[in-house]
C-alpha cells in the first residue's frame, strides 16, 4: 500500500497518543491504591485498618474472667443485666494490665444519672428524689451497687 507523503504527521500523532495512553496507565497504577475496587468502589484495605482500631471497653465477659465473685453477686440482683463498664467506664487497659488502677466510680453522680426521679423516664423504672430519699447520705450506705436490694447486703 502506498502511503501518501503528507500522512506522516498522522503517524506521529498516533505514536504520541499511544505514549500518552501508556503513561496514563503507568501513572494511574501508581496513584490508585492497590486494594481499590477489591469489594467495591473504595479502598478495600481501609476495612482492615478500621477493624484494627484499639478497643477501650473490655467487655463484661473479660471482666468476669477475674471478677467471678462480683459477677455472682450481681447475677441475683436488679443490676444483673447492667454490664460492668456501664458504671466503671472503659477498662481495657486495666484488663490488659491488672496493676493499672481501674478507678472508683462516684456513686453521687452515677446513681442519680439513672435513678433521679423524672417524669420523662419510663414509669416502671425505679426512681427516687435523691435529697428526700437519703437525706444527703451516699447511696451505698444502704444499697450495695452490685446488688442494690437493701436485704442483699446494705444496712438500714
Amino acid at each position: 500500500m502506498r502511503i501518501p507523503k503528507d500522512a506522516r504527521h498522522l503517524f506521529r500523532l498516533a505514536g504520541l497518543f499511544a505514549v500518552g495512553t501508556l503513561s496514563f496507565l503507568v501513572i494511574r497504577s501508581f496513584i490508585v491504591p492497590r486494594s481499590f475496587g477489591q469489594y467495591g468502589h473504595y479502598r478495600g484495605a481501609s476495612i482492615a485498618e478500621i477493624a484494627a482500631h484499639p478497643v477501650h471497653f473490655a467487655g463484661h465477659q473479660t471482666c468476669e474472667t477475674c471478677h467471678a465473685d462480683v459477677a455472682q453477686t450481681k447475677s441475683s440482683g436488679k443490676h444483673a443485666q447492667v454490664n460492668c463498664e456501664a458504671c466503671h467506664g472503659p477498662q481495657a487497659k486495666h484488663a490488659d494490665d491488672p496493676s493499672i488502677d481501674p478507678g472508683k466510680p462516684d456513686t453521687a453522680v452515677l446513681c442519680v444519672r439513672c435513678h433521679a426521679a423524672s417524669a420523662a423516664r419510663p414509669k416502671g423504672f425505679p426512681q427516687v428524689d435523691a435529697d428526700a430519699h437519703s437525706n444527703g447520705l451516699p447511696c451505698q450506705t444502704c444499697h450495695q451497687p452490685h446488688n442494690p436490694a437493701i436485704a442483699a447486703g446494705g444496712s438500714k
Partner: peptide, 20 residues
C-alpha cells in the same frame, strides 16, 4: 464499633447501656 464487632464484642454503646 467495627473494630469491636469484628472481634466478637458488642459495640461500646450497647456494652454501656444499663437497661438493654
Amino acid at each position: 464499633c467495627y473494630h469491636r464487632i469484628t472481634k466478637g464484642l458488642t459495640t461500646a454503646c450497647c456494652e454501656a447501656c444499663p437497661t438493654g
